[in-house]
Every structure is written in structure tokens, then in C-alpha cells.
């Protein structure tokens, strides 16, 4: 390489196609297809937005990543506002250290003023949502959490920005599970959308810091979770025959 080009690239005046991977530090997701598409894996810090329906395998996709996050830094994993009770069997089976898991369920607080009854229900839910976001921010900022998982009803642009800043401050990753219908683009490190697939998940990268959008691809879970994939099409006639 010529001395001039070397000098230019050192002063970052020349753009390299392969420099994009440096946008964030990647942690392997445990699924080879995904790692390949994301150039290394999921971001170790910052906001990760996942648009998904509940129960199609969104948590299974993240379990190896969470396990690594927890093990590398010996810090907490926080689950905030889970849609139902978390099962210890599942988490322990994935190799997570249960003593470093924190579950936060924002409760319905007794409202200070019981005057307006018709508004109360709405207010209560709003309050719960506010508390969940507050708890998430505190966890991220504290610097003693590796990852925070949040199931919000909705999240605004300003709130996402706050969470992103807090996550960077505490060197933690924040994973937000949203419904597919919410199309608002958030300031995130990575945004993916998940679709159910008989053999795993159909994954679309909506947005990734420092990269171009790519075509949807399939993440196969047949190896890790054979019981939660439909049987191979080749095996189908055999079962029918038997």
C-alpha cells in the first residue's frame, strides 16, 4: 500500500467497506447463521429492539447470548414486566446462573387520589409502564447489570433514547420486545423482526448500526431445540406410513 493511502486511511479520510463491524462489540448469538449475517453476533451493549409475537422463539434465540453476557461479566440479568411467570427450569437448563437473575414486576400501586374512577384504570396502566421504564433505566445506569429485558406496552422515541444512553453508561445491553405492529423506528444498535418458521425463526434485520439492510433469512433451531421444531419434511411421510 502506498504511503499516501496509508496516511489517508489513518486519518480516517478513506472509507473502508470492512470497517463497519467496529460500530459495536459483538457477542456470538450461538446461532451460526445469525452470527454470519450480523458480522459477529449481537451487540454487547446498547439497545436491541426485537419485534415479535409472543411465544414463537424470541427468548430461545437470545438464551445463548444472555448466558455469555452473564458469564463474561458476572453481572445481573434483569427481566422486567414479563408476560407471564418465568420458569426456573428453562433458565437453569439454558445455563443461566439463577442467583444472578432479577425479576421485576411493577405492581399496581394504590392511586394517591381515588377521585376519578373512569380515568383510574388508564392511569394505573400508565403508572405501571412508567415504573417499568424507570426500573429499566436504573438497572442500566447502575453498571451492575449485564442485560435488561423489557416487555413494554409501548415505547416512545425519547424513552428509547434515554434507555440507549443509560445502557451505554452502564455498559449493559437492553433488549426490548415489541409487537410487530409498532413500526416506529427507534435509535437502536440493532433492530430485528421475527416471524415464526417451522424449523426455527424467520429473521429480518430492520436496522443495524453501520451496515446495509439484508434479505430475510432463516435461523434454524433444529440442533438446539429439536422438540420445538416441526419434523423434517422428509420424515413426514415416514411418520404417516407408520
Amino acid at each position: 500500500m502506498s504511503a499516501l493511502l496509508d496516511q489517508l486511511s489513518r486519518r480516517q479520510l478513506v472509507w473502508h467497506d470492512d470497517s463497519q463491524q467496529l460500530a459495536y462489540q459483538a457477542v456470538s448469538s450461538g446461532y451460526p447463521e445469525l452470527d454470519q449475517q450480523l458480522a459477529g453476533g449481537l451487540p454487547a451493549t446498547g439497545l436491541i429492539d426485537i419485534q415479535t409475537e409472543a411465544g414463537i422463539g424470541e427468548l430461545r434465540l437470545l438464551l445463548p447470548y444472555l448466558q455469555q453476557q452473564q458469564q463474561q461479566s458476572q453481572r445481573l440479568l434483569v427481566f422486567i414486566g414479563t408476560p407471564a411467570e418465568l420458569s426456573a427450569d428453562m433458565l437453569a437448563g439454558a445455563g443461566l446462573d439463577l442467583s444472578q437473575v432479577l425479576i421485576i414486576t411493577p405492581m399496581k400501586q394504590p392511586a394517591a387520589n381515588q377521585k376519578n374512577n373512569q380515568k383510574q384504570n388508564n392511569q394505573k396502566q400508565n403508572n405501571q409502564q412508567q415504573q417499568a421504564l424507570w426500573a429499566a433505566e436504573q438497572c442500566l445506569q447502575s453498571g451492575c447489570c449485564a442485560s435488561v429485558l423489557l416487555w413494554p406496552a409501548a415505547i416512545s422515541l425519547a424513552q428509547a433514547r434515554r434507555l440507549q444512553l443509560a445502557a451505554e453508561q452502564g455498559a449493559a445491553s437492553m433488549i426490548v420486545f415489541r409487537h410487530c405492529s409498532q413500526t416506529l423506528s427507534l435509535p437502536v444498535n440493532l433492530s430485528i423482526s421475527l416471524q415464526p418458521d417451522p424449523f426455527g425463526l424467520q429473521l429480518t434485520v430492520l436496522k443495524r448500526k453501520g451496515s446495509w439492510p439484508a434479505a430475510p433469512f432463516r435461523v434454524s433451531m433444529q440442533q438446539q431445540w429439536p422438540a420445538l421444531c416441526l419434523a423434517d419434511t422428509t420424515a413426514q411421510p415416514m411418520r404417516q406410513a407408520g
Binding site: 447502575s142 451492575c144 452502564g170
Partner: peptide, 25 residues
């Protein structure tokens, strides 16, 4: 780390109530 895990838990419990912050066994 800005605070320890125990400090974080006290902080969360003070606002959300004791029962809202739990571990899993």
C-alpha cells in the same frame, strides 16, 4: 459500576415495593 447490586435492589424496592423485586430459585 456506579453502585453495587445490593444498592440497586434497595433502590428498586424503595420505589416499587418489596414484593415487586425478586429473584428466581
Amino acid at each position: 459500576a456506579r453502585m453495587s447490586a445490593l444498592q440497586l435492589i434497595s433502590l428498586l424496592q424503595a420505589r416499587l415495593g418489596r414484593a415487586a423485586v425478586t429473584g428466581l430459585t
